[in-house]
Structures are given as structure tokens and as C-alpha cells.
Design a protein around this nucleic acid. Structure first.
Lengths: 79, 79
DNA sequence: TTAAAAAGTGCTTTTTGATGCACTTTTAGA
DNA sequence: TCTAAAAGTGCATCAAAAAGCACTTTTTAA
């Protein structure tokens, strides 16, 4: 996943949970300005920023070995 | 995964493939100094740095809904 | 055992991420 | 429609990431 896509997961999850940027900023400890910037498509967050946001939204960041198997959008095998 | 763990995945994958830091730095486009710093446990990489390294090693970075929370029948979080 | 390769570190500069403040624009609800 | 809430932006500051260079330490293989 490109980092724009990772940010998009954050944004979609936040909106799905009907949480405002302001609330997510408070819950996660990430500055509101930073969150606004990221969600509007600017910047390249540090891993810790991404993790703070993910933690607050129940999302886990991880690495997975790429395979040549068919997978769904979460990288889970569908075979 | 904490970012130390993410870096550890990089390191383990690199050594498993018997690739040196120098080679990985060249293949990924990440500076050797940066890679050395990260693997020796210092710093908080940007997502793009982590992705460059992951790409070169066949690792995919992604977000996943945490499993140790309340979910519905389809595995979707209901929190 | 020892020499070369690989990994780790101190110092430095440049770039850029994180942040606050104030403001504008957009969206959603009464 | 109109307004308040939410989202987005320009400007500035501070801290830290990325990077190169030269050096030391550790690991590995002959």
C-alpha cells in the first residue's frame, strides 16, 4: 500500500465511525493540523504518527511478505 | 506493530535473503546511513522510507482492523 | 588467528514532518 | 436558505528524519 492509500484507510475508517478530525486528533494525540494535512493528501507521515492514528481507530499496521496468490484489499488470501 | 517491530521485519527479511545493508540501500534508494540508523534501533522512519525498503524486500505495508475487539459476522469492527 | 567485509556511530547539513494560530471554504442540518 | 460544524489552507517555528563522510567495532571466512 502506498502511503496515500494508508492515509485513505485512516480517513475511511474515521468517517465510517463518524468521528471528526478534531476528535480523532484528541484521541490519538496527533495534532489537528497534522491530521488535516495528511487527510487532505499532503505529506509523508512518520510511522509513529500513522500508528497513533491507527491505534485510536483500531487499526494495526503491519508488514506482510508479498505472494503471488490472489488476495483481497486487506492482503488476506482469498484462495 | 510498533515501529521497532516493523524495522525488525525489515532486518530479518534482509538477513534471511542474505542481503547486506549496503545492497539494500542501493536497491531501495534509501541512504545507507539511514538504513544503518534504523536497523540499529534509532529513529522513527517516514512511511515512504519504510515502503522503499519493503518494496525492495518484497514486503507489503498495510493496515488491518484489530482482531481483539468486538466485530460483527463479517469480521468488521462494530466499535 | 587475522584480515576483509559488514555493521554501527559521531558529527554535520539540509530537508521536511509536526504543530499552533488564524483564516477561508465546504458540508450538513434546522 | 442560513448557519454552525467540519474540513481545508497560509504562515511560522521547532524538532527530527534523511543523508554523506569518516571512523570504530563486530562478524565472518580463509
Amino acid at each position: 500500500m502506498h502511503h496515500k492509500d494508508l492515509i485513505n484507510v485512516i480517513k475511511e475508517r474515521r468517517t465510517a465511525l463518524q468521528v471528526t478530525q478534531e476528535t480523532l486528533a484528541e484521541l490519538s494525540g496527533v495534532g489537528l493540523r497534522t491530521l488535516k494535512q495528511l487527510e487532505s493528501g499532503k505529506g509523508n507521515p512518520t510511522v509513529s504518527t500513522l500508528q497513533k492514528l491507527g491505534d485510536a481507530l483500531g487499526l494495526q499496521l503491519n508488514f506482510k511478505v508479498k505472494t503471488n496468490q490472489l488476495t483481497n484489499e486487506t492482503g488476506e488470501s482469498i484462495v
